[in-house]
Every structure is written in structure tokens, then in C-alpha cells.
């Protein structure tokens, strides 16, 4: 009885493990599948699971954004592309084994480098002593993000005078506007490029 009562289970770590395994596992599945539609499906699952990691890290808004734009928008676009360019059903393209070996060796070296770097700094390794006690204000960032986009950094009001934080007070208004304009230009450009004349009998399904 006392054992049960004292049984403390870290749900944060558990769900981190769960989502991390899903994310990495499906990312590897994307790599090792040759069927393009299955790749897209695994990519959906991998990105969705990484949205779960965002939620766990307290970034609710970014997680929802990831689900909405990445998974609900970009990947639908990708699958559209797959359907429009499929020559025959379930087409697969084989990669030569030499390329595989080379890519995997280089990738393994890169992974080793990144993993070494990830555990290099002590502060990164230790973690928060008591994540359950992070205050309410820190956990609810949506309003702060919104104010940040309109050029007001409400999270930095208490920075001491003369510190580097104060210079960041201007917020993200200019980048926000630039990104908006950039997005508009890109969408117009993409629509223009995709509209070029089709050659006869090249289209599988009419768009």
C-alpha cells in the first residue's frame, strides 16, 4: 500500500519518450520507404508527433500552428503534388546501394557530431529542477506571442535598465510584415509557375 502511494511516475518524461520515439521512428520510416505516398503518410505522423513535443515543451500556440500549417496545409500540398506527378500507380524509384552506403556513412558521422554537441553543455543536460512548478504566467504564452508580433514585448517589461534584453523590446513587427509580404509574393509566384502550359498526355489527373 505504501509502495503504491509513494509510486511517483513522471508523466512528462513518459510522454516525451512516447512522442520522441514516434517522431524519430516515423522519420526513419520516411527515409527507408521507397513508395512516395507511404513516405508522405509517415511524414504526417512524424510531424504530428513532433507537434506533441511542442505541446510538451509548453509551446501550445506553435504546436497548434504546426498542426494547422505544416500537417494540414503543407503536407496536403505535397500529397497533391504526388498525385499530380504519379506516372503509374504506386511507383517506386530505387536508389543504388552505393549511394545508400555513402549517405548513411556521412549521415552517421553527422549524427555522431550533433549528439556529442547536444550533451556538451552542462546546463542543457540538467533540466529544470521542478517543471511542475513553472508559474502560470510562463506557461500561457499565446497573448505574449500575439503582442510580440504587434511589436510589444510584454515578457521583457521587467528586464533591468541597460541590459541587452531592453534592446529587444521592439518586438517582431517588422519581420512579421516582411514574412506576410513574402508569403503573398511566394504564393503568387508559385501559382504563376505551376500554371504553365502542359504538354499533351503528361497529366494524370486534371488539376
Amino acid at each position: 500500500m505504501m509502495l503504491l502511494a509513494a509510486f511517483d511516475f513522471d508523466w512528462h518524461a513518459f510522454f516525451f519518450m512516447f512522442f520522441a520515439l514516434l517522431t524519430c521512428g516515423f522519420a526513419l520510416a520516411v527515409l527507408f520507404t521507397s513508395n512516395i505516398v507511404r513516405m508522405a503518410f509517415y511524414l504526417i505522423l512524424s510531424l504530428g508527433a513532433s507537434a506533441g513535443l511542442f505541446f510538451l515543451a509548453g509551446a501550445e500556440f506553435v504546436g497548434a500552428m504546426q498542426l494547422m500549417i505544416y500537417v494540414g496545409g503543407t503536407l496536403v500540398l505535397l500529397i497533391f503534388g504526388v498525385m499530380l506527378t504519379a506516372q503509374s500507380r504506386f511507383v517506386t524509384m530505387k536508389t543504388s546501394s552505393g549511394e545508400w552506403v555513402m549517405a548513411l556513412v556521412l549521415g552517421g558521422a553527422l549524427l555522431f557530431l550533433l549528439l556529442t554537441a547536444a550533451f556538451r553543455v552542462g546546463d542543457w543536460r540538467t533540466g529544470h529542477p521542478n517543471p511542475a512548478n513553472v508559474g502560470l504566467a510562463e506557461s500561457k504564452t499565446t497573448t505574449q506571442i500575439g503582442m510580440g508580433f504587434t511589436g510589444v514585448r510584454v515578457d521583457k517589461l521587467d528586464a533591468p535598465e541597460g541590459s541587452t534584453l531592453v534592446s529587444g523590446m521592439s518586438g517582431y513587427l517588422l519581420p512579421f510584415v516582411i514574412v506576410s509580404v513574402h508569403l503573398l509574393v511566394v504564393l503568387v509566384g508559385a501559382a504563376y509557375m505551376a500554371r504553365t502550359k502542359r504538354r499533351a498526355s503528361s497529366a494524370g489527373v486534371g488539376a
Binding site: F16, L28, L31, L110
Partner: peptide
């Protein structure tokens, strides 16, 4: 507890993949 390093590992695996 989960730390930044653990997230970095997942990020590294995604990046390399």
C-alpha cells in the same frame, strides 16, 4: 527530468534523417 539535451537528440535525429 527531461532536459534540453533530450530535445536536441530528437532534433538531431530528424535533421540527419
Amino acid at each position: 527530468p527531461v532536459s534540453v539535451s533530450h530535445y536536441l537528440v530528437v532534433g538531431a535525429v530528424l535533421f540527419v534523417t
